[in-house]
Design a protein around this nucleic acid. Sequence first.
DNA 1: ATTAAACA
DNA 2: CACTGTTTAATA
Length: 490
Amino acid sequence: MPSAKTWKSLGQSQPWTGNPSLHGKRMLARHFPLNHRIFSRSTGSTIRHLSSQASSNVFKSKHNQEIVDLLLTYKEEEERSDEPNYYRAQAFAKAVYAVLKVDRPIRTGLDLREVQGVGPGIVTKINAHLLASDADLRDKGCATTLFLARVSLTGLLDPESYKLLMDHRTVSELDKIPGIGPVTAKKLAEAGCQCLEDLKSGRFVHLLKGKQGIKLKYAGHLECAIRRNEAEEVLHFCRESLGPEYDVNLVGEYRRGFVSLSEIRMMISHPDFVHIPLPHKPVQQPTASVAKKPRTTRKSKEGKTNLLHSDIVPLLLQRGLLADTLSVDTTSWKGVARLPGPVEVWGDRVDRISSIGKVDGDFRKISLHLVPQRSQGSSMIVLTGDDHFVQDICYRAQQRGMLFNEYGLWKWTVPSPISTPEMEPSSSSSLPAPSDPTTDTGYWSLINSTTESDIFQELEMPFVDPTKRNFSFISYRTKTTSKKKRSILP
DNA sequence: ATTAAACA
DNA sequence: CACTGTTTAATA
């Protein structure tokens, strides 16, 4: 039954079903069922059995049947899983077609690296299969004369392929480590680094740069999902540490109601931090939006320090919450925090710091954002997300001749009362824009937007609950509000 | 899972 | 500023 399902679903869901060459193959399969495969498989494990049946119907490869079968197995496995990923299943199907086009024996997955439709994932899977199969046969002492016949087809590997596969395996192992991609992994492997432990030993630190080293230090921690209560505990810790003048809140995924978070994101404001920079350029027209970024030299701005870098971060470091820095910006800090747990187990500051030194405990990604008090509403929207939703807000503002950013909602105003020439009547916006933002003779001024509600109101939209701020909300809006154009930028 | 494009 | 590498979004 599963076999039928496999080829059936594959055939039905594919536009290539009518491919005449496939009909030919199907006929062929009927006349010569499985015969050349009799010796090509070792112990008939269940999956292999099923998959070979499946493939015997349609997908027949002269040299690479084993790989085709393997891919079909993966496809089926994906389809039968609890939460099937259509695209992943499809990717396996695509790979099958790609392999069918290869008219020579494939020794290792590496032979497929240039083939369109076969990516690094499948290459790795094929190699893993070959290695496992190889080990399996050796264990069983099956390298006897009977099996030697099929060595050239599949099964036992020649020494050269074996080494290639082992090397490739270490590379893809290292590739899994966050912050390390295929290139770095290759460098490391060439230097003799074989696994995570080797890398942690520190012998290869010189090959890593920037964030890579830090991410490595917390490998196994940073990719862990964060529970809501863990974020709340960090929040509590921060509030206790920073004192009453600070306003600290959890934003991002937490505020959107996610059960588990990929990072802890906090918005902080303080009465002393009030600087709101003006938007640089008068306009960002969708057409020529590739505008060059303003020539503001980065140093002049970053030279200035603010509460975040002078007070907040140093304090939380001293208190044994923050462990390492990943990146800094003028108003934000991203890094690693050690989860303090509930108050009862916070323990002593010194102990926490020594734990951090030993990488003892649970470490998670965290980002801190210092926002001006008057911009709390807009910053809240931006930092809560998600990106689609914020983009939509920006677009709505633009439609009304306004500008939205993390500092607020801005209106273009011209000093002189002289009307600007009508250049381009903004498409669907029936509202009279205060003035034309394309003129050079004006400036952005902030409209009251201290709370989220202010902004929603100004943009003529209902308050959107944080948990609804995602793509589905936007598509709902676009479908139901017929007059408005798509709210998402193309 | 793959790919192309965006991002650092 | 180009280059390299990493992350993200789309895919039917």
